[in-house]
Simulated scan of single mutants.
Amino acid sequence: MVTIGFGGGCHWCTEAVFQPLEGVSEVRQGFIRSDGPDEAWSEAVEISFDPDRVSLRDLIAVHLSTHASEADHKMRGKYRSAVYSMTAEQQNACATHIRDLAAEAEVHFVTRSLMHRGFKPSDSRFHDYYKSNPERPFCRTYIAPKLAKLRARHSALLKKEYTTS
């Protein structure tokens, strides 16, 4: 298993996006920090995945397509758009994938490849937020559209039980 972090929007949303992916065995919702100037805690998830079942490039493609990865808005402190790597080698691979995906899509991503320098979990009552009650107004308004985008753009990456939801 390989560990990596993703941040970009609300960690409730990010958690729900990565849970249905084939090869992802665990999604931990919380806050991640990096080196300065990104040392402040920002909402994110850590995931454990099997690279033989889902590639790092595919995970990054999912991430870039399910949050505002092209927008540098005023909430970027709380919702930093980043991929958090555990090693320098992983960080370089992430930067290359982000650059390649941007060139293919002919867009500019604000998402950065950063080093993972700490994780703290969110309050446990918020874990599995979407799974626990998908009918909540927040889930219907913010998470469900991201999951619809995930199914439309990345259906081949979904665990079988999520392909018909």
Rank of each mutant, 00 (worst) to 15 (best):
F18A: 02
L114T: 06
R125M: 15
C10V: 08
S42G: 13
R53W: 02
L158D: 05
H63E: 03
G23M: 12
E106D: 13
S124E: 08
H127Q: 10
Q90Y: 04
G23F: 09
P37K: 03
G8L: 01
H67P: 04
H67I: 04
C13D: 02
E135T: 15
D100F: 06
Q91F: 01
L56A: 12
A144I: 02
D72Q: 09
V54W: 04
G5E: 07
H108Q: 09
E26H: 09
S122R: 05
E39P: 07
L59S: 07
T164L: 11
E135W: 07
E26N: 10
F109L: 02
A88H: 02
S55P: 06
G30P: 09
Q29R: 15
K74A: 13
A61K: 08
C94I: 01
E89F: 04
R136D: 10
R53F: 03
L147R: 11
R99C: 11
R76K: 15
S165H: 05
L64H: 03
V110L: 03
H73P: 01
F109H: 04
R33F: 12
Y84R: 05
E104M: 11
A68R: 14
E15Y: 03
P134W: 06
P145C: 11
V17H: 01
S85E: 00
T163W: 01
G9P: 02
Q90L: 14
D50K: 10
R33L: 14
A105Y: 03
G23A: 10
L157H: 07
T96S: 15
E104H: 07
C10S: 14
P51L: 10
T163L: 15
A44P: 02
